[in-house]
Every structure is written in structure tokens, then in C-alpha cells.
């Protein structure tokens, strides 16, 4: 009996030694040299592998970051400025700070505002629905509500509101990785400057139809009337193809356009409740 035991032990040990040698030789032969700094940069990245930077995962970004001469075009939207500073420190470089951004959904076409004219009954995917038809309402630009943006979000930061059937972005969770922007086949979601205390103003519509047509399809559509353009004291609003657009770099969050818009297509988020007019103006001056 003991000879069997002994034999087994010796055989297994021998096998182990032989395999270890083979493994070592193979590892030596196929060794790939990698810049150790890639590992260091990767270590400071968030590790979400969301692809928001445009590279396949955090390692891809770290690789590009180490190899790039000029890193100004690279940015990790998830980690933000802190992460970028840390990464730059590894390389002994400095990076400019960028304003934090957030995804905004530019459609307010809830069933109440935008009448459904047909019923969709197919694969639950906006992309599939878009390739089939214009949408279940009279507006061919609006949100389909099938949640492609929700499906791609790695941070659980977006969900479809059961009442409005529109995507809602969470201020806290959104990292502005841009996955939803790419996923939306209607190009409704946009990355905008987050604004102080998440305060932001934007045109919540991308309908390029003429005013009458747009209004007929949706009560809160931008009808391209241009009133906001006229009222804006900062030249932040442009009108193109019957659609107003607020440049977030110029907007000073004065909220004049919000009041002016006849269809309530311009949304203001995270502002304190409105005060009587005089006070509101006083406050605007203060913030400026």
C-alpha cells in the first residue's frame, strides 16, 4: 500500500515540476513589454470600463494616455478633474480642468403632451423601432421610450418614468460618459454643462418641423417662434430649422427664455421655486 502512495506522490511532484518549467519557459518566450506607467495610470482610473472616454475600457484609455504627446483631448468623464489630475501626476504632466457635464433628455413628449396615434408592438428596442417607423406619435423626432439609453447606462443613472414614459437622468449618478448619447437613435440626449448646483436650462425638444406641424403633434414642442432668441440678453440662443438651441457656454441661467416660451419647451432644472418677479430679477443680478 505504501508503495502506491509513494509512487503517486513522486509522480505528482514530478509532473508539477515539469509543468512549472514549461510554464516558465512559455512565459519567458511570449513576454510582452508594457510600459509600467500604464498600470499606474489605470490604477487611478475609476475602473468602470464604460467607454465614455472613447477607448475600450480603462486600460485602453490608460494606454492612450501614456502614449499620447498631447493629452488635452483625453478626458475621463466618470472620474472628472480629480482623476485626470491624478493620472497626469503619474506622467508628470498637468491637465486643464473641465466643467462637469451631465446628460440631458431633450424631449418632454409625455403621453399627456403628445398624443399616441399608433401602438408599437415589436422588439423593445428604440433602434429596432426607429428602423421600422417614425414613432408612435405625430412627432418623428421625439423619444420612443423603449429604453435603449437605460440599457447601456453602466451607472444606473437613467430610468424611464412610468408616467411620462420619458427617460430621467439622475443628477448624482450620471457621470456624463456619453453612452446614452450614442445609444439614442433619435439623438435626443445631449451632454451639457452641469451648471452650478446642477442648475441648467435647455430646450427640451428637437422637433425641426414647422411650428404648426410640431404643435399639432406635441403641446410642448419648440415651434421655432424665436421669442426666446429675442429675449435672451446673452445671445446664447440660436434658431435653426425651426428649432431653438441654447449654447450652454453662453447661457447665464437668467431664466428669461423660460418665461417667454409659449409652449413651455424650455426647461429649467433644480432652480428654487420662482419668487415674485422683482425679487427674481434681483437674484439674477446677484448670480451674475
Amino acid at each position: 500500500m505504501s508503495s502506491v502512495l509513494l509512487f503517486s506522490i513522486i509522480m505528482l511532484s514530478l509532473l508539477g515540476v515539469v509543468l512549472a518549467v514549461i510554464l516558465y519557459l512559455v512565459a519567458q518566450k511570449f513576454k510582452v513589454f508594457e510600459d509600467p506607467r500604464i498600470d499606474e495610470v489605470e490604477a487611478v482610473l475609476p475602473g468602470a470600463n464604460c467607454g465614455g472616454c472613447g477607448y475600450p475600457g480603462c486600460r485602453g484609455f490608460a494606454d492612450a494616455f501614456v502614449k499620447a504627446e498631447d493629452v488635452s483631448s483625453l478626458f475621463c468623464p466618470v472620474g472628472g478633474n480629480d482623476t485626470m489630475n491624478a493620472a497626469a501626476a503619474v506622467m508628470g504632466k498637468t491637465v486643464e480642468a473641465k466643467d462637469p457635464e451631465i446628460a440631458v433628455v431633450r424631449c418632454s413628449g409625455s403621453p399627456e403632451n403628445r398624443k399616441r396615434i399608433v401602438q408599437y408592438d415589436g422588439a423593445s428596442s428604440c433602434k429596432v423601432a426607429t428602423s421600422l417607423y417614425s414613432g408612435d406619435t405625430g412627432c418623428q423626432y421625439g423619444c420612443l421610450g423603449l429604453g435603449d439609453c437605460v440599457a447601456v447606462c453602466k451607472f444606473d443613472a437613467i430610468y424611464i418614468d412610468p408616467v411620462t414614459l420619458l427617460p430621467v437622468v439622475s443628477d448624482e449618478k450620471c457621470t456624463a460618459c456619453g453612452a446614452c448619447v450614442k445609444a439614442c437613435p433619435k439623438f435626443i440626449i445631449e451632454l451639457r454643462k452641469k451648471g452650478p448646483k446642477s442648475k441648467r436650462i435647455f430646450v427640451s425638444c428637437i422637433n425641426k418641423d414647422k411650428g404648426g406641424v410640431a404643435r399639432k403633434a406635441c403641446q410642448v414642442a419648440c415651434i421655432g417662434c424665436g421669442k426666446c432668441v429675442k429675449v435672451c440678453p446673452h445671445d446664447a440662443i440660436t434658431l435653426e430649422n425651426n428649432l431653438a438651441y441654447i449654447d450652454f457656454n453662453k447661457c447665464k441661467l437668467c431664466r428669461k427664455c423660460v418665461e417667454e416660451c409659449p409652449t413651455s419647451a424650455i426647461l429649467e432644472l433644480n432652480f428654487p421655486p420662482r419668487k415674485p418677479k422683482v425679487e427674481a430679477e434681483a437674484q439674477v443680478e446677484k448670480t451674475e
Binding site: V118, Q119, Y120, G122, A123, V128, L132
Partner: peptide
């Protein structure tokens, strides 16, 4: 058409 028809892919 006043009634809501169903639209689905073939």
C-alpha cells in the same frame, strides 16, 4: 385614422 392601430415589424 382615428383609432390607434398597431405597428410592428414583419
Amino acid at each position: 385614422m382615428d383609432k390607434q392601430v398597431i405597428v410592428s415589424p414583419s
